[in-house]
């Protein structure tokens, strides 16, 4: 039974919504991270030497010691596949026409959650994955400037 199947026994309802629209700023670190992704096609992290942590995507401060992070580093476009899933339903529980692949690719102590372009049978946790970027002219400074990750061939 689909989650969305109407239930004839259900109580009657009044429909309304909770409208909220926001304008989110990218922030001190985000502004720079996404600008570099857009202009230079690089993934940038920030380093806290005292805590031995590399934050990817880059952050403005270290969550462990609260120091300002001023040391930035290019972590490259290749990370490690930390885990992945194959999606069969959408957010509302409807079956997808084609299963979709989503993975978490580790960079430094963080990483990037994104779509994967691969055959699911070829995926193995721990393998190297490469970011596929949009052409520079089409990049707008968003995580979707990365189209996804594919196995390094």
């Amino acid at each position: 039974m689909s989650l969305l199947q109407p239930d004839p026994q259900a109580p009657s309802v009044w429909r309304d919504n909770l409208p909220v629209t926001s304008r989110y700023t990218y922030g001190l670190a985000g502004e720079r991270f996404f600008r570099i992704l857009k202009d230079e096609g690089k993934i940038i992290g920030s380093i806290c030497a005292a805590c031995g942590a590399t934050y990817v995507p880059a952050r403005a401060f270290c969550e462990r010691c609260m120091a300002e992070l001023t040391e930035w580093t290019d972590v490259g476009l290749v990370g490690e596949l930390h885990t992945f899933t194959v999606l069969f339903v959408d957010m509302e529980g409807r079956p997808l026409d084609e299963p979709e692949l989503v993975g978490f690719v580790r960079f430094g102590d963080g990483g990037i959650l994104h779509k994967l372009d691969a055959d699911p049978d070829d995926l193995q946790i721990g393998m190297k994955m490469e970011a596929v970027l949009k052409p520079k002219a089409e990049r707008i400074g968003a995580i979707t400037d990365i189209l996804g990750f594919r196995p390094v061939t």
Binding site: Y24, Y26, G30, F34, P57, H82, T83, F84, T85, L87, V89, M91, V102, G103, F104, I112, L113, H114, K115, I125, A142, I143, T144
Partner: peptide
């Protein structure tokens, strides 16, 4: 996160599936 995650339209099932796969593996 508005910038790194929401543009991908993630939901909680993704997160749990990813975690379960990592734990099992």
């Amino acid at each position: 996160d508005n910038f790194t995650e929401r543009p991908l339209k993630p939901n909680l099932l993704w997160i749990f599936a990813l975690e379960m796969n990592r734990y099992m593996t």
